[in-house]
């Protein structure tokens, strides 16, 4: 029983980390074709905003996370309107530009706020099963990850905004001719992607040391998840986080976190080689065959 729960706990922990790391990146990439190298730095910004709001201004932690995510979202919006909007049809250029932005963000934060800021300690304590202890907050993160995914799914599939956004991403010229303000759709999508990055940073800030370079520790996992997930941001992120979560948690549990990280990279290589469209591409193909 305890053994089953231990595996489940490690899987869920890994799953939520991958999902939250990748969702924002995946939406921006899937919907806009922008490869956002500054994604990790947006996560870092979310962690900084959350820590500053909760420690310096004594705003309750949950509200701080939310405000931090909104601030990150607006910063993303600002960047989109000033820089990213010039790169919509230039995916390769977007890599270089967003990489530059990532350097500016992490160095800028270091200059303004120094090498680290105080963050709050992980809330909620732990629970015991058998004679082993598990962190409660980590299980809350799993719930938050699933709820976030459902909300994003709802926004993109069941609202008018979602319909217009998807139309813009598929054929922006036709969407435009039908009266959709495509610029606004891109900006809103980038806002959502940045908001999700900020949210992830805020959620993980109490579990980590908040430093300007913390974004890089999310980047590898996020990119691997998006590669394995493929072009459909929501379905892809969900399936690939689940698949990679199993690989990562089992390998880490068996041979240490080094093996877990290697496992993720090997999965990325296998997918690029055998199934370049990712898990969601595979699902689409299966659907097409059944029709």
């Amino acid at each position: 029983m305890i053994l089953v729960f231990r595996h489940l706990y490690l899987f869920l922990d890994s799953f939520s980390f991958l999902l939250l790391s990748a969702l924002g990146l995946s939406i921006i990439y899937g919907m806009m074709g922008i490869i956002n190298q500054a994604h990790g730095e947006f996560i870092m910004l979310g962690a900084y905003f959350t820590s500053l709001l909760s420690v310096a201004l004594h705003i309750p932690f949950i509200i701080s996370i939310f405000l931090g995510a909104i601030l990150t979202g607006f910063l993303g919006l600002l960047l989109d309107r000033t820089i990213i909007c010039r790169l919509y049809s230039r995916p390769l250029d977007s890599i270089v530009v967003t990489w530059g932005i990532s350097l500016i963000l992490s160095q800028g934060i270091r200059i303004i706020l120094g090498n680290s800021v105080e963050s709050i300690s992980t809330p909620l304590g732990s629970f015991t099963i058998g004679n082993e202890k598990f962190s409660t907050y980590r299980m809350v993160l799993v719930a938050v990850a699933v709820i976030t995914l459902m909300v994003v799914y709802y926004i993109f599939n069941h609202t008018e905004f979602g319909l217009k956004a998807r139309a813009t991403m598929q054929r922006s010229d036709i969407a435009k001719s039908l009266g959709v303000n495509t610029d606004k759709m891109y900006a809103a999508t980038f806002f959502i992607g940045s908001f999700l990055a900020g949210l992830t940073g805020g959620l993980y800030s109490p579990t980590m040391m908040v430093v300007p370079t913390m974004g890089t520790s999310f980047n590898m996992q996020a990119f691997v998840t998006v590669i394995v997930g493929g072009s459909n941001p929501i379905l892809g992120s969900f399936l690939s986080s689940a698949l990679l979560g199993i690989v990562n948690s089992e390998l880490s549990g068996w041979a240490g976190s080094f093996a877990g990280q290697i496992g993720l990279l090997i999965m990325a290589i296998i997918f690029i080689r055998i199934c370049p469209l990712g898990v969601s591409g595979l699902v689409d193909r299966l659907k097409a065959v059944r029709r």
């Binding site: 490690l10 962190s135 890089t216 080094f258």
Partner: peptide, 20 residues
């Protein structure tokens, strides 16, 4: 004994193994 790569930030599996 576990050796952790530089830059690792997630330690759930490490902590579980130590408990074990």
């Amino acid at each position: 004994t576990e050796f952790v790569p530089m830059g690792t930030t997630q330690f759930s599996s490490t902590i579980t193994k130590i408990q074990d």
